[in-house]
Amino acid sequence: EKTLKIVADSEEEAEALAKELAEKYNLEVTIERNPEEEGKYVITIKIKP
């Protein structure tokens, strides 16, 4: 299993990107607040072998 993390500037941007990735590529995608940067969100994508 591989994990890729993407940082987005807004929750709306994160949700839109996560939804597109999940639907288009059938990936497991989660969104959470970035504890290191206020106002940023981390999109985590898990790629199963």
Rank of each mutant, 00 (worst) to 15 (best):
E1Q: 14
E1W: 05
E1Y: 04
E1R: 12
K2H: 13
K2C: 13
K2N: 13
K2F: 06
T3W: 13
T3E: 06
T3G: 04
T3S: 06
L4A: 03
L4K: 03
K5C: 11
K5W: 15
K5H: 11
K5M: 13
K5F: 15
I6P: 00
V7Q: 12
V7R: 15
V7D: 08
A8E: 01
A8S: 05
A8H: 01
A8C: 15
D9H: 11
D9W: 13
D9A: 07
S10C: 04
S10E: 01
S10N: 07
S10T: 11
S10I: 01
S10Y: 02
S10G: 03
E11F: 14
E11M: 13
E11I: 13
E12N: 05
E12W: 09
E13R: 05
E13M: 09
E13V: 07
E13N: 04
E13A: 10
A14H: 00
A14C: 03
A14R: 00
E15K: 14
E15D: 05
E15M: 15
A16K: 12
A16Y: 10
L17D: 00
L17Q: 03
L17W: 15
A18K: 06
A18V: 09
A18S: 04
K19W: 08
K19C: 06
K19M: 06
K19Q: 07
E20A: 13
E20G: 07
E20D: 06
L21V: 03
L21E: 00
A22K: 08
A22V: 13
A22L: 08
E23S: 14
E23K: 15
E23L: 15
E23Q: 15
E23F: 14
E23G: 06
K24A: 07
K24H: 05
K24F: 07
K24I: 08
Y25D: 02
Y25E: 02
Y25W: 08
N26L: 05
N26H: 08
L27Q: 05
L27I: 07
L27H: 05
L27V: 07
E28M: 11
E28A: 08
V29L: 04
V29H: 02
V29E: 00
V29F: 14
T30K: 07
T30P: 01
T30F: 12
T30E: 06
T30G: 03
T30S: 10
T30Q: 06
T30W: 14
T30R: 06
T30N: 06
I31A: 01
I31L: 04
I31M: 04
E32I: 06
E32R: 07
E32A: 09
E32F: 12
R33N: 07
R33Y: 07
N34T: 06
N34L: 14
N34S: 14
N34I: 11
P35H: 08
P35E: 09
P35Q: 09
P35V: 08
P35D: 09
P35A: 09
P35K: 10
E36F: 11
E36N: 14
E36H: 10
E37F: 13
E37T: 09
E37A: 11
E37N: 09
E37I: 12
E37C: 13
E38I: 09
E38D: 10
E38C: 14
E38H: 14
E38W: 11
E38R: 08
G39S: 06
K40I: 06
K40S: 09
K40C: 05
Y41V: 04
Y41L: 03
Y41C: 03
Y41G: 01
Y41W: 15
V42L: 08
V42N: 03
V42A: 02
V42D: 03
I43M: 03
I43Y: 02
I43W: 02
I43R: 00
T44H: 06
T44I: 13
T44Y: 15
T44D: 01
T44R: 05
T44N: 04
T44P: 00
T44G: 01
T44E: 03
I45M: 07
I45W: 05
I45A: 08
K46S: 08
K46E: 04
K46R: 10
K46G: 03
I47K: 04
I47Y: 14
I47T: 06
I47S: 06
K48S: 10
K48R: 13
K48F: 11
P49Q: 12
P49L: 14
